[in-house]
Design a protein around this nucleic acid. Sequence first.
DNA 1: GACCTGCTGCGGTTTG
Length: 727
Amino acid sequence: MSFNLLSEPIRKYVRDKKWEQLKPIQAAAIERILTTEDNYILASRTASGKTEAAFLPVLSAANFNAPGIKVLYISPLIALINDQFLRVEELCKNLEVPVTKWHGEANKSLKDQLLKDPSGVMLITPESIEAMFVNKPFNVIRLFSGLEFVVIDEIHSFLGTDRGIQLKSLLSRLQTVNRHYFRVIGLSATIGDYELAKTFAGPSRKTTVLLDKTPKEVKVSFRYFSGGTDELPLALLKNLYLETKDNKALIFPNSRGRAEEVAVKLKKISQKVNGHPNYFSHHSSVDRDEREYVEYFAKNNTLHNFCIACTSTLELGIDIGTVDEVVQIDASHSIASLVQRLGRSGRRDGAASTLVLYATGPWSLLQSMACWLLYREGFIEPPAESSKPYDLLAQQALSIVKGTSGIAPDQLIAQLKGNYAFAAIAENEILPIINHLIDTDMLERLGRELIIGVTGEKVVNNKDFYSAFTTEEHFKVVHAGNRIGEIPYTPQVLVDQNIMLAAKIWKIRDIDFKAKKIEVAVAKDGKKPIFLGLPGNVHAKVRQKMLEIIYTGDCYDFLDEASVDELKVIRSDFRAVPIEDPTVQRPLIDTGNKLQLFAFTSTKINNTIALLFHIKGIPSQFNPPTDSFEVVLGYTDFMAQWRSLPETISAIDGYLSAQAETNPEKSEVTKWAFLLPLPLRIAIAKEKVYDIEGTRAFLETVTFLAAQQTEGNQAPFSSMDQLPGKA
DNA sequence: GACCTGCTGCGGTTTG
């Protein structure tokens, strides 16, 4: 019995809670954590009791009588730390163990107090760990040298990201100041690649994944409303209103601007028919107080229905209570994201999740269906992690040097080499990076040691040094002294223009460029705000599934009549090309004066093919919504060029170098790439934007099957010419 | 045709 393995104060906590039984992930975690010395990844759905699964055994096992912090909880969000603080404090109530929040907004005097007599449990962000290594390395040793457990919450949010590599490096550095090796417990949602999650725990112990596969019933339905390019179709909004009016609903429309449009327009419909007034928008540009109010409303009222149009701000584990249904408008950019959103619905035990997917165009319908079918097959995109994160190694080199008052070069290199975040980078690759940092005055030789250079001081003494990501600059939006939120400065921002923000409409009264502030008044009609963003990366498997849906002829019971009709149109459009094997064949339409190639592959491979066309001087244009290339060449000419495309791959490095020489900022695709010598900057860009090996494999295996567009089939692809967003 | 995340130290001023 796992319960009997717990320490007495923790058993008392469980008894006081009057739980009927421990949840499966909790029983498994208690059993394994308390009877082995391994690291664990605990993977299960939102609200399945993961926090307790980690903390019940960890708090039982840690020796809080010894000095120093014993349990370090790391979270990607301050809001999650504040949430979890209350739960962890309650878990600790029978233990007389202090629990301390340590992040940029946490109480400074409580932090100072803890430094006098460090003990218990600490909740922290990766950036705050970085800041402590940089500014107060003696505090790192004082607080963490007796650490026994590290719990990483929402570990999936770090996978495949630069922030994740930084966290891994910080964990590796923490292990080296530790007297023993601490154990790592990672908490994760269901993800596509557990091997990558395991690397976060490091090589010092075996890491095991405990996966709760309890199935969840999902009621899913697709609805199709052919849409204009700018605003959502009115018929869709009316349908959406009726769908959500008697529920607690979350709507994910993929962008902040569209979230505003949905919130404002549904609220207007509701006002007209005397429905409930609880329509909100929730995304990073809505003021924090307003967002917290929305979260509080969702969590604390059981009587009233509500509807929140939101972005990924409501994907992570902040507890907003029970939601009856989740609505996705047009395809999500990944299956992983769809899974997270789905997890928000039907959170009460046993309750089914309800998911409604709207599509406003044929390609969006296909992509949404592809995501759903792949999810049901058990596929989630594996996150793509940098194989050789030279840029973060450079940033961490500065962090290490800053934390010392001088360090010998070979010692610095040994520390970086021993860091498991950079295991893939060879020792002889590190020296050129250090030399480049010296050449650019980021580092400086002082006798036999290295210190931060004059230019480097500006970098490490900036508060921006502690994070792995960049943020755009926004103008604050203020109404009569109240902060509404913030928007980027775009041509839309003009006096007397009306905009939507925080589910309300505002007229711009005054723009203060110096203070970056926009003063607004209440208005009745307006446009959704424009946000500047780059398109997301779609996985090759999703695109291939879209092609399979076209060519299999399968029927799906989750489609409404309009979706079925639209699918028929798409299928008939492609009938001219007799694809038999969608894994290796792709359609090509020859209109006589140009070719249209449907690649049905990942965003990165498309980027690479476009680059190869450009290098070879093939006149072509890529149409993102249809995932197709238009090539102005005759069929025979093109096929000759296509066959020689693999040979052009070797020219990519030279081309990108030449481009970077003339346009250096173009090669800085990540925050810290600017610290690197040019060839390494290009190596980073090649991984983030392109997929060289994937393209090589694509070119080797895929053949285009041509169809001639003649008098008789002029009509095909007519539906594709009126896509939303097509330039 | 995208989304999200975090933040030291120091000097100065204000307030109890």
